[in-house]
Design a protein around this nucleic acid. Sequence first.
DNA 1: ACACATATATCCACCGTAGATATATCTGCT
DNA 2: AGCAGATATATCTACGGTGGATATATGTGT
Lengths: 112, 112
Amino acid sequence: MPDTTDLPLRPPVFHILLALSTAARHGLGIADEVEAASEGAVTLGPGTLYRSLDEMWDGGLVAPASPPSEDADPRRKYYRLTESGRALLEAEVARLERLVDLAKVRVAGERA
Amino acid sequence: MPDTTDLPLRPPVFHILLALSTAARHGLGIADEVEAASEGAVTLGPGTLYRSLDEMWDGGLVAPASPPSEDADPRRKYYRLTESGRALLEAEVARLERLVDLAKVRVAGERA
DNA sequence: ACACATATATCCACCGTAGATATATCTGCT
DNA sequence: AGCAGATATATCTACGGTGGATATATGTGT
């Protein structure tokens, strides 16, 4: 089984962590949030979605969460971030931030 | 042949564009620069490197450049960014910047 | 009750990546 | 000059990841 805790994170894993950073969500709700947050640039097919969630579960990045309301659709399985999931997200954000900072200097610096 | 001009860029293509943003470089020089700029987090094997360069050539993102000095190793093939290559890099940087900004708000916002 | 939408889950085919390998040639050492 | 090892480009192959199609169950609306 692949290790989902290595940096750089695979894009789907990063986006799922990001989608869960604000609220517990169920599978398809995560996919919707990822697409919305990325302005349509990133989409998750069901294969990638559920497989990633399985791996993230095994890696201790996500855990089950109770439904947000009493009369929620019982088919939905809600996930939340664990402490290590949030820590991993922070680490990846820090890495990407350094990368973007470097890239911004370079693309702007060419105007001389 | 895959289209290398779609956003999100595949990570190797993004890193190669970034490596060429400051100077014309040859194949292995690009790989070295990518590893250095990412603090060792990103490495490019020869397969990915030369295949990506071929596709980027076909896509008009990179073009041949003259060696930086007269007595350079003649085996080295130097590449430089084209205008569209630089434009594509800027677009991807902008996308990543929005993503990182969003992520920073979310990971910081949880401390309430 | 019936049709359709939603939800999880699995399967498979394709694409992208990384490593091994091949070949050529440059550099340094004796 | 000759030899050994390093460097450089290039290709081939095996593996892993992704995404779409499909299956099944169940909720929702008419």
